[in-house]
Simulated scan of single mutants.
Amino acid sequence: MSDFPSPPVPDADARELGVGGSVWFQAGAQMLGGAARIALLAAIRETGSITGAAKAVGMSYKGAWDTIDAMNNLAGETLVERAAGGKGGGGTTLTPRALRLIDTYRAIEREHRRFLERAAQAVSELGGALEGASGDLAVLGRFGLRTSARNQLYGAITALVRGAVNDEVSIALPGGQTLAAIVTRESAESLGLAVGADVVALVKASSVLLVAGGADGEAARLSTRNRLSGTVSALRRGEVNAEVTLALPGGVVIAAIVTEASVDALGLEVGVAATAAFKASSVLLGVAG
Score class of each variant (00 low, 15 high):
residue 88 G to H: 07
residue 88 G to D: 07
residue 90 G to Q: 02
residue 90 G to V: 00
residue 93 T to K: 10
residue 94 L to R: 06
residue 94 L to G: 06
residue 96 P to K: 08
residue 99 L to V: 00
residue 100 R to G: 09
residue 100 R to E: 10
residue 101 L to C: 01
residue 104 T to I: 02
residue 104 T to F: 06
residue 104 T to L: 15
residue 107 A to V: 04
residue 108 I to H: 13
residue 108 I to C: 12
residue 109 E to F: 14
residue 109 E to G: 08
residue 110 R to W: 07
residue 112 H to P: 00
residue 113 R to K: 13
residue 113 R to Y: 09
residue 114 R to C: 13
residue 115 F to E: 03
residue 115 F to S: 07
residue 119 A to M: 14
residue 120 A to F: 06
residue 120 A to V: 03
residue 121 Q to H: 13
residue 121 Q to W: 14
residue 122 A to T: 02
residue 124 S to N: 11
residue 125 E to K: 10
residue 125 E to Q: 12
residue 126 L to G: 10
residue 126 L to I: 07
residue 126 L to H: 09
residue 127 G to M: 04
residue 127 G to F: 06
residue 129 A to F: 11
residue 129 A to D: 02
residue 131 E to C: 11
residue 133 A to I: 07
residue 133 A to K: 08
residue 133 A to P: 00
residue 134 S to E: 12
residue 135 G to E: 04
residue 136 D to I: 01
residue 137 L to F: 15
residue 137 L to G: 15
residue 138 A to G: 11
residue 138 A to M: 12
residue 140 L to C: 02
residue 141 G to T: 06
residue 143 F to Q: 10
residue 144 G to D: 08
residue 145 L to W: 07
residue 145 L to G: 04
residue 145 L to N: 07
residue 145 L to T: 02
residue 146 R to W: 06
residue 147 T to F: 15
residue 148 S to H: 12
residue 151 N to K: 02
residue 152 Q to H: 07
residue 152 Q to T: 09
residue 152 Q to I: 04
residue 153 L to R: 00
residue 154 Y to P: 02
